[in-house]
């Protein structure tokens, strides 16, 4: 393993607040996630026609990625070689429950196609890839808790094998009223060395 890689940027969203590279960039007093993420989308002036059609997990992942990647000045008229390695605990459980509710009563059986398409956690990776033209490797892992060791090894492996130029990695979890996104960009330049301890330190920061 070469391990000449760096964490060039990171974004954290939880408790109605957003931090980019450790700096508080947005917070509000919304009473629901739905209200918070809508306000954040508008405050960031993000333009993506399908945003309001996404499920909660995808909205959370999309905004964390967007806030981080918009500072990278990517050229979205061409393909971008950034791999995505995401993880969480609840998978797509929030949307799975909504789908289950819609098929619970055989006499009132009207499953929503728009809900059903989000009953996989990795759908959020597609939304981010469409916005930023990421025609690259992507994976979504399910763990009991934040697994810095696995994310570190997997991201390094992708870079060592020249599978991508950079890796957007981290944790995006949504269940009931609990949510958290922590994404970081692993690049070949930067100030913070990409290692397990630094990932944990930034995550806990």
């Amino acid at each position: 393993m070469k391990n000449n890689y760096y964490i060039s940027s990171y974004c954290h969203i939880k408790n109605n607040s957003v931090w980019l590279d450790g700096n508080d960039v947005y917070q509000d007093s919304s009473e629901t996630f739905s209200e918070f993420i809508k306000n954040l989308y508008r405050a960031e002036n993000t333009k993506y026609a399908k945003f309001f059609k996404m499920d909660n997990l995808s909205k959370l992942a999309f905004m964390a990625a967007d806030i981080l990647l918009k500072n990278e000045n990517l050229n979205t008229s061409t393909d971008n070689d950034i791999a995505l390695v995401f993880s969480n605990k609840a998978a797509s459980l929030d949307t799975d429950r909504k789908h289950q509710t819609s098929i619970q009563d055989k006499l009132d059986y009207y499953p929503s196609p728009a809900v059903f398409v989000y009953t996989l956690p990795n759908i959020c990776l597609g939304e981010i890839s469409i916005k930023y033209k990421l025609f690259s490797e992507n994976s979504f892992f399910i763990f009991d808790s934040f697994n810095a060791d696995h994310l570190f090894n997997y991201s390094n492996s992708l870079l060592d094998l020249n599978k991508s130029e950079a890796v957007l990695s981290g944790w995006v979890d949504f269940d009931d009223t609990n949510y958290e996104a922590f994404l970081y960009l692993v690049s070949k330049t930067g100030d913070t060395i990409h290692n397990k301890q630094n990932i944990i330190t930034l995550y806990n920061g």
Partner: peptide, 17 residues
């Protein structure tokens, strides 16, 4: 309105429901 294929499926469900 720029609706897509998933929207079309939703409209089919709406007609039924």
């Amino acid at each position: 309105l720029g609706l897509d294929s998933i929207d079309a499926l939703e409209l089919i469900v709406m007609l039924d429901k």
